[in-house]
């Protein structure tokens, strides 16, 4: 079996995986990082989004071997060591941008990548289009957009964190 060496949330791992093993299964079953969820198996729902070298990736259709040598960040790796939430996490909580919470990790990871790649203030419509690859069946979309709009101000230094 091939070996994969990768950094996940700042920690180095070397793991034996099958060539067919998906990144999400490596994270969930081998590393116990279950905050990344599987919702559709086919890249539509976005519950499995993580960052690979800083870019959002749907880990349910990304082979573990593709992540060899990469730095992966999951929802568990966002908050600071002292528990201070990432501004996006804080905004989701503050603006009630979650209900059942199953889509939340992927939604947060996608939203961070979206904001990181848009230094200029995004409009509501831009945020909505930017997150169209993430499904929420509780349809908390309205509050999700509010949360992302607030978080972008904090992430780009235009405002203070929610809490």
């Amino acid at each position: 079996m091939p070996q994969v060496s990768l950094t996940v949330n700042g920690k180095r791992h070397t793991v034996e995986v099958e060539t067919r093993t998906l990144l999400v299964e490596l994270l969930r079953e081998k590393l116990g990082l279950t905050g990344t969820h599987v919702g559709c198996d086919t890249s539509q729902c976005g519950a499995c989004v993580v960052h690979v070298d800083g870019t959002s990736v749907k880990s349910c259709t990304f082979l573990a071997v593709q992540a060899d040598g990469a730095s992966v960040t999951t929802i568990e790796g966002l908050a600071a060591a002292d528990g201070t939430l990432h501004p996006m996490q804080a905004a989701f909580r503050e603006h009630h941008a979650l209900q059942c919470g199953f889509c939340t990790p992927g939604m947060v990871m996608s939203a961070i990548d979206l904001v990181n790649s848009h230094k200029e203030r995004m409009s509501e419509a831009e945020i909505r289009h930017g997150l169209e690859g993430n499904l929420c069946r509780c349809t908390g979309y309205h509050n999700i957009v509010k949360a992302v709009a607030a978080a972008q101000e904090v992430m780009h230094g235009r405002a203070q964190a929610a809490e």
Partner: peptide
């Protein structure tokens, strides 16, 4: 705000398959 919000935004809420 919901009391389970912190667990859900940090990936700490454990669903069945977790």
């Amino acid at each position: 705000t919901r009391r389970d919000g912190l667990l859900k935004v940090t990936g700490a809420a454990r669903f069945a398959a977790d």
